[in-house]
Design a protein around this nucleic acid. Structure first.
Lengths: 131, 131
DNA sequence: TGACATCTACGAAGGACTTCGTATAGAGTC
DNA sequence: GACTCTATACGAAGTCCTTCGTAGATGTCA
C-alpha cells in the first residue's frame, strides 16, 4: 500500500519550525515562511532562506525554481516526520518500550478527559485494524 | 509530594548513553562507564572522561571527589529525564497533543499484544488515580 | 626511591547548527 | 538606460557537540 520513504536526516529545531509552517500553509516561498517566523520569533530573512536552502540540500525540502521566487515543498508528510522522531526517541530513551513512553507522556502533564478518551479510541482502532 | 526538579539542559546523544549506564549500574567511576561503552561502541577513555566532566559542569551529574577515582551520580532519575525529553518532543513536534504522539508511537512499529495490554493497564491506572 | 600504572586536567581539532552581512542577478518603471 | 525592489547566492562568525592526544598528579610496590 504505502511506498518506501526516503531515508532523511532528522530535522533540527530550526528546521522543524520551517516544516511546521510549510505543513500548515502548503508549498510556499521563503518570503511567506519568513513572514510567519518573523512574527513568531523575529527570524531574519536570510536566516530563513539559508536554512531552507540547506534543507533542500539535505533532501528535506524540494525546490521549484521556475519562478523567480523559488517554491519549497516538504518531502515528507508531517505524520512521517512525527513517526521518525518518535521512533528515534523510543529507541534512544525508552529502549523500545512504547508503554513506558506513553506512561511518561501522560505523567508529565495534566491530560484532559477528552484527550484520554481520544487515546483509548485510537487504541481500539489500532487493535481492531491490525487484527 | 514530589520536590522541585532542577532545570537542567536536555542531555545530548552521547550524554544519554552515559546516563543509561549510570542508571543501570548506579554511581560509578569513569573507568566503569568506559568499560561498558567501549564494549558497546568502542568509545575512548578520555572521550568518556571529558563528556562526564562536561555533564558535571552542566549539572547533569554529581561528582564525588574524595577518592582518587571520582564517582559520578546522575542528578535526575531516569524517569524524570524521560519525562523531560518526551515533554519536549510533545511540545515541539506534536503541538502538545498527547493522543497524536501515542498514535504515532504505535503506528511506526509492530506493537505486541502484551505491549498494548500494558498501555491499557496504564491508562486505567492513570485515570483511576487522577480522579 | 624509582618505575609503573591509574586518573584527572587541559587544549585543540573537526563538524554541525544557527545567524547574519554583503554581493549579485532579474524584473518592472520612468 | 538608470533606479529600485525583490530574490538568491556566498561566505563567515559563534556556539555547541564529540573526539582524542598529551601532560601532570597520585598511588603502589619491589
Amino acid at each position: 500500500m504505502s511506498g518506501r520513504l526516503p531515508d532523511l536526516p532528522k530535522p533540527t529545531a530550526a528546521e522543524l519550525e520551517i516544516l511546521g509552517v510549510l505543513w500548515q500553509t502548503g508549498p510556499a516561498t521563503v518570503r511567506r515562511v519568513h513572514e510567519v517566523l518573523e512574527a513568531r520569533k523575529g527570524a531574519g530573512y536570510t536566516t530563513v532562506l539559508k536554512t531552507m536552502q540547506i534543507m533542500a540540500d539535505k533532501g528535506l525540502l524540494e525546490r521549484e525554481e521556475s519562478a523567480k521566487a523559488h517554491v519549497y515543498t516538504p518531502v515528507l508528510r508531517q505524520e512521517d516526520t512525527q513517526r521518525q522522531l518518535v521512533d528515534d526517541l523510543l529507541e534512544k530513551v525508552f529502549g523500545g518500550s512504547a508503554s513506558q513512553l506513553v506512561m511518561r507522556a501522560l505523567s508529565g502533564r495534566r491530560t484532559s478527559k477528552k484527550e484520554m478518551a481520544e487515546i483509548r479510541r485510537m487504541l481500539d482502532e489500532y487493535e481492531g485494524g491490525k487484527r
